[in-house]
Design a protein around this nucleic acid. Structure first.
Length: 201
DNA sequence: CCCGAGATTGACT
DNA sequence: GTCAATCTCGGGA
């Protein structure tokens, strides 16, 4: 069981978003395998960081390998991992394959069907108990734990969900065939494999 | 100051 | 398929 090296998060957001697929994300021991991500950076009009720093997105401009947690639609929390070659980059964690603490997640989620425990950015923060209190925390220390895992054989790529600016950019990444994705990917399939940070345990 | 848009979700027709 | 819930931000009055 190996942690993701800190320098991994200094790579560009697209590479990090791909490379996180297959890794295990735990929060206080609860979580699962990352199966879906999206990448953002300051050059991207869809990114919260595009128009500069505000009180909400401040942690996006902090050091890499920390969490950026923001409130979505006034109701939900969304978890990003800060990364990039320049300040202002992040990867949104959109879905997990739940493997640790399923009972805790089910309680927090209100006895949902298993597939909806962690499938969706708002759902997974609720299942793991992540909120604004955890904004800015480092990812290599409790309560977070990030463990490298087996690289997926095939990564699917497509447009990001729920955005209108720069909507055509192919910056959503998923493990092909996973039943834990928040939504399907249509036909845009990439056979590119991920970089080397996901060697098997 | 007011108001619309937004990296969402769940309830409902 | 439609729609409301309810924070944060930014643009216009």
């Amino acid at each position: 069981m190996s942690s993701l090296p800190p320098q991994f998060f200094a790579l560009d957001a697209d590479t990090v978003a791909r490379g996180l697929l297959g890794a295990t994300l735990l929060f206080q021991g609860v979580g699962g395998v990352i199966v879906e991500t999206e990448s953002y950076d300051t050059a991207d009009p869809a990114s919260h960081s595009h128009k500069g720093r505000t009180s909400r997105n401040a942690s996006m401009f902090g050091v890499v390998a920390t969490a950026y947690v923001y409130r979505s639609y006034g109701i939900h929390w969304c978890l990003n991992l800060v990364c990039g070659t320049q300040p202002g980059g992040a990867v949104l964690i959109r879905a997990l394959h739940p493997t640790h603490g399923l009972d805790v997640m089910a309680t927090r989620r209100g006895l949902d069907t298993e597939r909806l425990l962690c499938g969706g950015p708002g759902r997974l923060t609720q299942a793991l108990g992540i909120s604004i209190e955890h904004d800015g925390l480092p990812l290599d220390a409790e309560p977070f734990q990030l463990i490298a895992g087996a690289a997926p054989a095939i990564v699917v790529v497509g447009p990001r969900i729920g955005i209108t600016k720069n909507a055509a950019a192919l910056r959503r990444f998923g493990i092909a065939g996973s039943r834990w994705l928040s939504r399907g990917f249509g036909r845009e399939v990439s056979t590119q494999s991920v970089p080397r940070y996901n060697e098997g345990h």
